[in-house]
Each structure stands twice: as C-alpha cells, then as structure tokens.
Design a protein around this nucleic acid. Structure first.
Lengths: 167, 167
DNA sequence: CTAAACTTTCAATAATTACTGAAAGTTTAT
DNA sequence: ATAAACTTTCAGTAATTATTGAAAGTTTAG
C-alpha cells in the first residue's frame, strides 16, 4: 500500500468512525487529516484535500475548536489562518471523554434521577419504573465516573494504572 | 411527576441516547419500553404505546434480537408472540459492549494495523502517518481490551473490582 | 479610508436514514 | 386442505442531517 492510499483509507475509516466518538463525518475527516499532517493546514488546503466546500470546512473547524481538539495557528507573514490538532492520542481521548460526559451523559443522568424519584404510588408498574431507572442511573453514573477517573490519570493511564490491576 | 409523564420522559431520553450506544431511536425506544414493563409485550402493544408502524416494530425487534438484548417469549394459550428484554443492567452493558467491540471497534483496529504497517519510504509524511496511526491503533486496542475485561467480570464488576483499585 | 484577502453565515438543496403500509409469507386450529 | 391470525418484507415516502455556495462580515495593508 502506498502513502496516498494509506492516507485516504485512514481518513475514511476514522471519519466513518465519527459516530463512535460522537461527531460527524466531515469533522472527523478534518481532524484525521490534521492528525497525520506534518504541518498546520490552511482552510484552502483542507477543502482541497477533502473535496468539501468552504462553508462546510469553516463550520466543522469551528466545532472542532469548540471541542478543544483543533487550534488556530498564526503563522507570521501569512494572512491566512492555519489549523492544527492535538497530536497526543492520550490527550485526545481525554478531551473527547470529558466533552461527551458533559454534553451527553450528565444530562441523561439528570433525567434518570428525576424519573427514578417519582412518588411510589404502590402499583407494580410504578415500582418497576423506579427500580429499573434507578439501576440504569447507578450504572450510567458508575461508567461516567470510571471514564472520568481513567481519563484524568495524566501519565499512561491505560497501560500503567489499570491493566496490571485487572489481569 | 406522574407515572405516565415519567415513563414517556424515560423512553424519550433513553431513546435519543441511542447514538451513544450505537443503535437507532426506535430500537432504543422499544428496548426502553420493555425494560420498564412488568410483563412481556406483544407487537400490537408496542406499536400502540410508541405509535409506530407494524413494519418498523418488526424490523427493530429483529435487530434487538440480533443484538441479543430482546427475546421472544412464548405464552401458552396465546397465538401472538411476546417480547422481553434483559432486565439486568450489568448484563445489558456486557452485551452492548461486546457487540460494539465486534461490530465497530475490531474492524477499525484492523484498518489501523494495515495503514500503520505500510513501507517506510523515509519521507517525513510517511513517518508521521505511520507514527500517528500506530499510536491510535495502540490506544484503540487498549480501550477495547479494557472494555472487554471490565465487562467480563461477572459480579458487580464496576463497583467491586475497579473503583477500589483506582481511588 | 478603500480595497483585497480572507472567514462566517445561512437559505437552498442534496444525501442519508428512518418509517409506513400493504402485499407476501408463515403458522396454527379446525 | 382452508382460513384466520399473525409476522416479515420492501418499495415508496417522509424526516432528518449534512453540504453547498454565494452574500455578508471581518481584518489587514497601504
């Protein structure tokens, strides 16, 4: 496999995996491109490489910056803006986990709390609703906590801290 | 909040969270409904409760059964088929994690392996591609392994095994 | 200040994904 | 075998989500 083919394969695969970490295709593709680039890229270059429109590029770059995954680079002597992504995978994972926890998991936990704390009127169906949503709330809470703990270990959290404890 | 309101809130919230665990809305809603039901439900009852068509119900039930989350119940004396979902949240999490690993993560790891093992032609961009995809492959691998290990602890894996080790 | 270089916004449109409903298929009871 | 009861399939349609491109906005140089 040649460089160009490998590069395209990577961008496509990682792009379509977007759903797994909760972002859309173009966003994921832009990030992928920056991730394997040896230098910051301009909007022009990104558009050209991915064959997407200016507007699309602009909007998705903005979202990536909102997530804290991509940053603007000022290059002296250049009028254009350039973009880079976080290059350290552990740091990336940390950012993604934090954001998803904040944006998606926390709000769900809130709803589960509300639902599981309705008044028990003694009927079987109410009891079941309370019991099951409570269980789900506890599980979601535990997973969220675990994820955040993992992700806050600054140094090689995965291999160092966890694996040896679980083997 | 009354039972009916709480129930609807739960089904909607859990339904729209579908993306987080990788299934579509109707699928997630059907599962939610069964999850808080005190008895197995027929297709008729599911359609009625969720206001969705027969075809939609049939297809999504089939998918839920493919995932191993929902099972058919035969009720004696009844001609109709009835459905139930796994009621234990830990077991549910285990099934979901296993399926997502198999369906989504493993194939991505394969691609990352392929891409990261292209021939190093000595150029900076090839080196960068190899280095970064390798790092991503290692991370994805680690996360996948961790997830599967967690999820295979049969008894109270989360609270018992992991938390105390990380505090 | 003005014009050029660049970025953002957003209404229109395209692409994708989900849903319906009726016809075809299957199973069970008689 | 036949018919009733039920489930599945799938072409057509609807709903949702992503993308374009051109106009409006912003910044910088001179």
């Amino acid at each position: 496999m040649e460089y160009q083919e490998a590069k395209e394969k990577f961008i496509n695969t990682w792009g379509s995996l977007g759903t797994l970490w909760g972002i859309n295709k173009a966003m994921a593709q832009i990030q992928s491109l920056l991730f394997i680039s040896t230098k910051p890229l301009s909007m022009e270059e990104i558009m050209e490489e991915l064959k997407i429109s200016r507007g699309n590029t602009s909007m998705n770059l903005r979202q990536l910056m909102d997530w804290g995954i991509v940053t603007k680079e000022i290059i002296r002597g250049e009028r254009k803006e350039f973009f880079t992504t976080e290059k350290d995978v552990q740091e990336l994972a940390r950012i993604v986990a934090k954001e998803r926890s904040r944006r998606e998991i926390k709000p769900v936990i809130k709803v589960l709390e509300d639902v599981s704390s309705i008044k028990d009127d003694g009927t079987a169906k109410t009891k079941e609703l309370i019991k099951q949503t409570k269980a789900l709330k506890d599980l979601t809470d535990d997973l969220d906590t675990l994820m955040n703990k993992l992700v806050n270990q600054k140094q090689n959290w995965l291999t160092k801290s966890v694996f040896k404890l679980m083997k």
